[in-house]
Write a protein that binds this DNA or RNA. Structure first.
Length: 382
DNA sequence: AATTCGGGGAG
DNA sequence: CTCCCAGAATT
């Protein structure tokens, strides 16, 4: 096993006969999982389906890596258009490596978790500079690259390089937790789960096994109302046999989201251009474009509302927007001003309305601009 | 071990 | 409304 390094403390030491029985069950379960995958796999843009694989088609590591980074905490449906856009703009990893970072941020805008885009660019640069434009073909080599952690290293290793790596994502966590009725709550249970996945992962077709487990979690072993009657592993599932599968995996309680408030200022120039500026490279929405505004704090500070104005103008309130982030909810008061002369004293710039859509604007900023200028992002304006 | 990172779709 | 999605980096 290439993924050792942690102690396996799952229950008591099994006898050798039990271990053999367990191993046989795991191997048989893997076979049934692969058989199910052959018949029920989803057709995804980055995936080499089993029939094509039999014709000798192999996955492009660049495609697998790009899709896996985009898929981190992100649904397949949300990723698809971005995957196609990136391959059109940058067909090879070396193209992405030599691209302008600002163009990459623009292309990523709307997908969220923007540190992924910054690390994506750094990773492409590292592959081009340190590896001759070829991705490392081991978990260790992959994990040393920016933006590639335990999951992505194992996934690329298994799917693109046919290595026997243990792939553990949110789907597999759910499948494994039910299969073995694991009472340990997440995230503490991850080492146990990874060891069980490693034991089950076959030497033959490890990439299809990983994708099959993820497809199973996405379509059969779902968070709510799992279709256990259709599951190829239902004969082995301890949660189905002894408890309620829907109650797995166990998870630590989550904390509530606080409310933060602030103000945003949308200035329109004489020709309709909007005043924009660039956010700091690190932190929330790091490196993305924004309209000027106050800091986002737990309660309203009237003085900040004055200081945060980019320049003196006849600012008029035009309503509020709300936006939900991962760990807080934001309520923004939006102000609008139509100015006759473009102020050029600050660090920002005036962006024509026609090219607003193509900017690196996160969703919350598009909401704020649309609140002030309802036709800003409508079709026909670009 | 906890926290910080977006956005959207399903139920 | 709640949950969670092919998680990683930082503290």
């Amino acid at each position: 096993m290439k993924d050792g390094g942690y102690s396996f403390k799952y229950r008591a030491q099994p006898t050798s006969r039990q271990m053999m029985q367990h191993t046989d069950n795991a191997a048989d379960a893997a076979r049934r999982l692969l058989s199910w995958y052959d018949r029920h796999h989803r057709d995804l843009p980055w995936r080499i389906s089993p029939p094509m694989a039999r014709d000798g088609v192999v996955a492009d590591p660049y495609h697998i890596w790009l899709s896996e980074v985009m898929l981190q905490q992100t649904t397949v449906q949300a990723v698809k258009p971005y995957f196609h856009k990136f391959l059109t703009l940058w067909p090879k990893v070396t193209d992405l490596a030599s691209a302008d970072t600002e163009e990459v941020m623009k292309a990523w805008a709307g997908l969220g978790y923007y540190a992924r885009a910054r690390n994506l660019k750094k990773c492409a640069e590292a592959v081009a500079r340190d590896h001759g434009g070829v991705f490392p073909d081991t978990e260790e080599g992959l994990k040393a690259l920016p933006g590639i952690g335990d999951y992505t290293a194992a996934a690329v290793s298994a799917i693109a390089f046919n290595r026997q790596s243990a792939v553990l994502d949110g789907n597999v966590e759910r499948v494994i937790s039910r299969l073995y009725a694991i009472e340990t709550p997440l995230p503490s249970a991850k080492p146990e789960m990874r060891a069980l996945v490693a034991r089950m992962t076959p030497a033959d077709r490890p990439g299809d096994f990983a994708q099959g487990m993820m497809d199973l979690g996405a379509t059969i072993c779902t968070p709510k109302r799992p279709a256990c009657a259709l599951c190829p592993l239902n004969a082995d599932c301890l949660a189905l046999k002894m408890a309620d599968p829907e109650t797995f995996p166990r998870k630590a309680a989550k904390k509530d989201k606080p409310l933060r408030v602030g103000a945003a200022f949308v200035a329109s120039g004489p020709d309709g251009a909007v005043y924009l500026r660039k956010r700091a490279e690190t932190g929330l929405l790091g490196g993305m474009t924004e309209v000027p505004g106050t800091a986002w704090t737990s309660r309203i500070d009237g003085d900040n509302t004055i200081e945060a104005q980019p320049f003196a103008a006849a600012w008029e309130p035009c309503g509020t927007i709300t936006h939900v982030f991962t760990h807080f909810e934001l309520r923004l008061s939006v102000y609008r001003a139509n100015v006759a002369i473009r102020d050029k004293s600050g660090n920002g710039w005036w962006e024509p309305l026609a090219s607003l859509e193509a900017q690196a604007l996160p969703t919350v900023m598009k909401k704020a601009i649309a609140q002030a200028i309802p036709h800003a992002f409508k079709a026909g304006t670009n």
